[in-house]
């Protein structure tokens, strides 16, 4: 109960932080403009002639690659730069509660951004009769994808007081998680090594695990993958924060 109160207090502050600064509004507008642009222009939404959101979800791993680290980069870097980390961690709460609170707040914010794409869903429902189950699965997958990227940004943010470094590091790590399962890359790997190795590498990729959700398949293994990425990255965040204080 106490733990949850602390997490709630941290979440409230973080979310408030997004909305009292222009970050939230800039992010939401850019996110919505870009999803629209990718879906309708590059994704050939209309030319496809099918009632689905495939052209919408396909771009999410790439879109999040830059947008999610932008949301997560300040989580801990800012605390270190301002010196408020000392204040926060001498309060009667565990480092865990602070990490989870911050993560959940940003995840909630990303969920809000994702929810605001509802006009796309309305459009596709007006124009045809899509399978809304598949679309829901896509949204769930997208949310977990964002969560995985966010946890990685959280981790890189704890490493440095510089937000730019934190941003670049998390983009690089997330890019690796995309490329390991990106078809052109796996095709290339296939030519130089055996299929088992390629499969193992690809199984670390968010692309491999996001694909199922897009087809409407909610597989436990994909859930396990995304939650373990989140769990691992947040755990590492805790280790980083502890080791910085240990000297």
């Amino acid at each position: 109960m106490n733990a949850w109160n602390n997490i709630k207090a941290i979440m409230k502050r973080e979310l408030g932080g997004y909305f009292t600064s222009p970050i939230a509004y800039v992010f939401l507008i850019i996110f919505l403009l870009l999803t629209g642009f990718f879906t309708f222009t590059i994704g050939n939404f209309f030319e496809r002639g099918e009632a689905s959101l495939v052209s919408f979800f396909t771009w999410h791993p790439w879109l999040y690659l830059f947008l999610v680290p932008a949301v997560g980069m300040r989580l801990w870097s800012e605390e270190r730069r301002l010196g408020t980390m000392e204040l926060l961690l001498t309060m009667p709460l565990t480092t865990w509660q602070a990490i989870v609170g911050k993560f959940l707040a940003s995840w909630l914010f990303l969920a809000l951004a994702l929810a605001l794409t509802f006009p796309v869903w309305i459009t596709v429902n007006i124009m045809g009769a899509p399978d809304n189950g598949i679309i829901l699965a896509g949204y769930v997958g997208s949310l977990f994808l964002a969560g995985a990227y966010l946890a990685i940004s959280c981790m890189t943010s704890a490493l440095t007081r510089n937000q730019v470094i934190s941003f670049i590091l998390s983009v690089v790590i997330c890019l690796f998680l995309i490329l390991a399962g990106y078809t052109p890359v796996t095709d290339l790997l296939m030519r130089i090594s055996n299929p088992v190795v390629v499969d193992v590498i690809a199984s670390f990729s968010v692309m491999t695990h996001f694909e199922g959700f897009q087809r409407g398949v909610i597989d436990l293994r994909d859930f396990v993958f995304f939650t373990s990425v989140i769990g691992f990255a947040l755990f590492t965040t805790g280790v980083i924060i502890r080791s910085q204080r240990a000297g």
């Binding site: 207090a9 301002l82 010196g83 000392e86 309060m91 009667p92």
Partner: peptide
Amino acid sequence: LPENAPGYADMTVHGFLSFAAELRG
């Protein structure tokens, strides 16, 4: 009171104190 008296730049004084009070239960 840490050295250099840090505070969350984007919060109001009231918001900051309210946050501290909340963490203090």
